[in-house]
Amino acid sequence: MTTTDDVASLTTVTIPQRRVVRERSVRRGRLGVAVALMAVCALGAVALFGYVSRTQPYLAVGRDVSVGAQITAADLVTVHLNPDPGIAGVPGDRTDQVIGKYASVALLSGTLLNANALVDKPFPAPGEQVVGVSLKAGQMPSAPLRPGASVLLVSTEESTQDKPAAAAPTIRATVVHVIAGARDGTATVSVAVGESDGPVVARLAAQGRLVLTLTSGS
């Protein structure tokens, strides 16, 4: 004989079917999330590929190089950067053109190699001195000065009432390195001069009495 309590217990057996429906709903939700994540990853991969494909190889300094040292293959590494007009770098396929040159300034590890920091000949050569000359606009040509350019250093002698202006000495020099100044039109130019001319150039430069001119073939 079936009692009321037995009927009540039988009517509660439908709960497992409801759990199955909920588990299927959860699985479908997880599947949708997985598909969305896969789509995001695919889009990220495409964007990354597009970014990498736009980069170009440039030469960088792999270890510190002292002033005047000759560049070797061990000093260089290749980095990939997006091309930009503001990047004064050396393309990665010009390694052969760089090896064998000399550093006109100290090159620091991890920095991008700049062609203007390299010269073809060792310096200072025997019998030469390198002197830094600070110049203002009007004391040098507006044309860019390149390392290796031949220049003339002309002094501007001041005349006095008791003494007429002496003939301005002219000293031949070679540009080693150029650093643009904080103000427009100013620059500090390192030049290689004869050993006997070094002290003269240093004294005139300290007095601001030097004008730099380019010679033919510079």
Rank of each mutant, 00 (worst) to 15 (best):
A137H: 03
A137Y: 14
A137T: 08
G138R: 00
G138M: 01
Q139A: 09
Q139V: 03
M140N: 01
P141E: 10
S142C: 04
S142D: 07
A143N: 10
P144E: 03
L145N: 00
R146N: 11
P147N: 06
P147E: 09
G148L: 04
G148V: 07
G148E: 11
G148A: 08
A149L: 09
S150V: 06
V151D: 07
V151C: 11
V151I: 07
L153G: 05
L153P: 13
V154S: 01
S155I: 08
S155M: 06
T156N: 15
T156F: 04
E157P: 11
E157H: 08
E158R: 14
E158V: 13
E158T: 13
S159A: 11
S159Y: 11
T160Y: 03
T160F: 05
Q161L: 13
Q161K: 15
D162C: 05
K163F: 09
K163H: 11
K163E: 05
K163M: 12
P164W: 04
P164M: 05
A165F: 01
A165D: 06
A165C: 09
A165W: 04
A166M: 10
A166V: 10
A167N: 13
A167L: 08
P169A: 01
P169H: 03
P169F: 01
T170F: 06
A173L: 05
V175A: 00
V176M: 04
V176Y: 00
V176S: 05
H177W: 12
H177D: 15
H177M: 11
H177I: 15
V178P: 07
A180R: 11
A180P: 11
A180C: 10
A180H: 12
A180T: 11
G181K: 00
G181C: 03
A182F: 08
R183D: 11
D184S: 15
D184V: 12
D184P: 14
D184F: 09
D184E: 13
G185H: 06
T186Q: 05
T186V: 06
A187Q: 00
A187T: 06
